[in-house]
Design a protein around this nucleic acid. Sequence first.
DNA 1: GTCTATATATGGATAGAC
DNA 2: GTCTATCCATATATAGAC
Lengths: 207, 207
Amino acid sequence: MTEQEKSTEEIIFDAAQKVFVLKGFDGARMQEIAQEAKINKALLHYYYRTKEKLFHAIFERVLSYIIPRVLAFVESDEPIFSKIEFFVNTYVELLLKNPYIPNFVISELNRNPDSIAEMLGGLMVKNDALKKFTVLINKEIEKGTIRPIRPEHLFVNMISLCIFPFVARPIIQGVIFKNDKERYQEFLMERKKEVASFIINSIKIEK
Amino acid sequence: MTEQEKSTEEIIFDAAQKVFVLKGFDGARMQEIAQEAKINKALLHYYYRTKEKLFHAIFERVLSYIIPRVLAFVESDEPIFSKIEFFVNTYVELLLKNPYIPNFVISELNRNPDSIAEMLGGLMVKNDALKKFTVLINKEIEKGTIRPIRPEHLFVNMISLCIFPFVARPIIQGVIFKNDKERYQEFLMERKKEVASFIINSIKIEK
DNA sequence: GTCTATATATGGATAGAC
DNA sequence: GTCTATCCATATATAGAC
């Protein structure tokens, strides 16, 4: 779809996503979104009655883009260590392309922890990925491929190692890399391999 | 120091910290801070001319409270694995007591990545903890105690595993623990041991 | 130092013309 | 459907009395 074929509604939607993702709900200004979309402020209210509604639409879109991609790895037929490599690889890749999304999601969930429950619930429960992951891990533990570990901890560890360096980018880039943007970018790319092997080394049982 | 001995300035300062940490700069209201301090709104401006200045003071205080504690582990004389256990333990303990601080710091650094550089620089460079950590790790690799790993990755992994579950509390608590607050609290406490052994298992070389 | 009252600015939302 | 002009609520900040 070319730029010209985009409907005004879509143009607004994309502009809003850009601004909301960068600034968060409180920081975003309807005026700025209008400017970004090159239309008038009043038109925002014509399409999406309130700031809150517009934000909600964006938030839902972002989550339903991210979550299935994050959980897809559970479905594959690969052996467990390949699954983990696949997970880390696709996740870090995804974040390199959308580095501001984690902060956006987190700051919104901080602002409004409740309103989101249903939305998330819908996306996850339908998929049931977490249960599958638990079964999967417990099976590997029984087989003796990996050491005993609560699947919840393993899962949280996996996402922590992937996401946090993006969430805390300013501080890590500043403190460790003296604000050298390029070096931090390289560092993040290195993590595609590094994190996977960090996890695998931790849980693997040598035969 | 008892409550009554606290000066008005300190009372304001503490109230402001409470509100800013919970709501962030954009979300915080001077009115709310005044209420929390049980004083008048105008008095805030009498002591700290602007919201921005008040915030800055709070932010500096929080960082200088957190950072030295996080980096203290480098100094101890313990062997490396004890150091790691100590780090994870004190850090998670600290976060259990101050669960909103990570989000506060992160959201501010997101809002304003530059202004903070000097402040951080001062706290870290003086201490030079990172360089010490690098030396430490490289020495252990040479000795054959741990497998080869870039110290930067190891350090980022350590803080990621500790902090992220607090940053992403609403989402993890919601998705994995069906919003059961108590179970999530237990889960976080378990991590004091779990994360340490996760890291150690990953880097240790068996003799 | 602490208060009440008020100025000033900003930003979300609406009215109404085209 | 899109614009200009404007309303109105909110929030920071100041003036001035005590």
